[in-house]
Design a protein around this nucleic acid. Sequence first.
DNA 1: AATAATTTTTAGATTAATCTAAATTTTTTT
DNA 2: AAAAAAATTTAGATTAATCTAAAAATTATT
Lengths: 220, 220
Amino acid sequence: MQNSFTEENYLKIIHALSGREGLEVSTNALAESTSTRAASVTDMLRKLAEKGLIHYKKYQGVRLTEAGEKVAINVIRKHRLWEVFLVEKLGFGWDEVHDIAEELEHIPSDHLVERLDAFLGHPRFDPHGDPIPDAKGNLTEPDYLVLTDVQIGEKVRMMGVLDHAPSFLQHLDRAGITLGSVIEIREINEYDKSASVQINENHTLFISLEVSKNLLVQRR
Amino acid sequence: MQNSFTEENYLKIIHALSGREGLEVSTNALAESTSTRAASVTDMLRKLAEKGLIHYKKYQGVRLTEAGEKVAINVIRKHRLWEVFLVEKLGFGWDEVHDIAEELEHIPSDHLVERLDAFLGHPRFDPHGDPIPDAKGNLTEPDYLVLTDVQIGEKVRMMGVLDHAPSFLQHLDRAGITLGSVIEIREINEYDKSASVQINENHTLFISLEVSKNLLVQRR
DNA sequence: AATAATTTTTAGATTAATCTAAATTTTTTT
DNA sequence: AAAAAAATTTAGATTAATCTAAAAATTATT
């Protein structure tokens, strides 16, 4: 049988919270992420376990089964493809697409996803730099580093963000930092750990530690 | 407050069944169209009336209010725009898009609809020839005629279909009849009322009365 | 106009997803 | 290892959308 909008969301969130290592996710963490109460989460977990989508033992937290992982990754694939569509084809800003993609990701139709993927030219990354799983569900997280791990004097390329909040993305827009920007760390200010960086060999500015922690970059 | 997926569907169906004249729609007709039971329809009608979306008096059938009409037309606008997208951009056949558009039509976001509309070049008609309401909700049904009303010897242009069933559309594909085709009625066969028609001054074939009844055409 | 047939509504349940409050289990802290 | 704190589950409701069976209203037919 089919999975509901809500079930898909739980699976997607379990995937996100369990991280690369597939760690156990707690009931409270899910309640937080789904904006529901722990009791509601417990009910849903029992249901997902019954459907064979998660491994669940009372009080022990949850992990996705293979089947659950497959569903979650397909939802992520759809989410990211729709985000590419919204930005590349409809001209939305990268700060505007998340909520709409949250809806579109649940439209069922494999046929639709595959045609959308082809229409977009089989993109490998979404507008925030997140990798798009392929049709078979292969999702390889590129091993970018966080800007805080970059040494003074190094030049790196901006490849993604950890925080997807519109306010953060808009802040980057104002700073002239976009995917592909070249960032050179000039110095770290003792006072507030902010960094002086040069963007695209071009303009220089301060970015706060908070911002640095949320920028994914690649050595070149 | 927002309208649910289900509420939007009821409004859309009431709109369709009440026709151009805004006639009263019966509970049973709605049960049929929504694939539910009359009792379920009654419950929903009470709810829609409470929200001010329909005029409803017990046992008297329903009509849309101005507000309900607006919602219905917006759903129709979204449905038809998405159909254009699916056919024009993703390469789906006109017989394949209905079910997917039934889902997409409920994605909320005015911003999305307006950008989609612009991306598609503000199309006036969907892939079945149905007119697309504009952003203000103006929906002008063009006054096409049904092929059965065309005289022998007349040449007309195919502009739309009354039946949207995939099997009918596939039948037209096999007959080489598409939107814009020029159809000339050569003769009506006494025996089964089938028509001999010539398509695009090119090939000739028989079409059944059933088919003729579902073809919308325009004199030129 | 009375009766029969049809349509519609009401009454009372059901399912999915949620809730609050209370009970239980696990974890942490003395 | 008790006691306290935190996390989780259970019990019992609630809301939206649906259902079946029975009652009521309308329409059609003698």
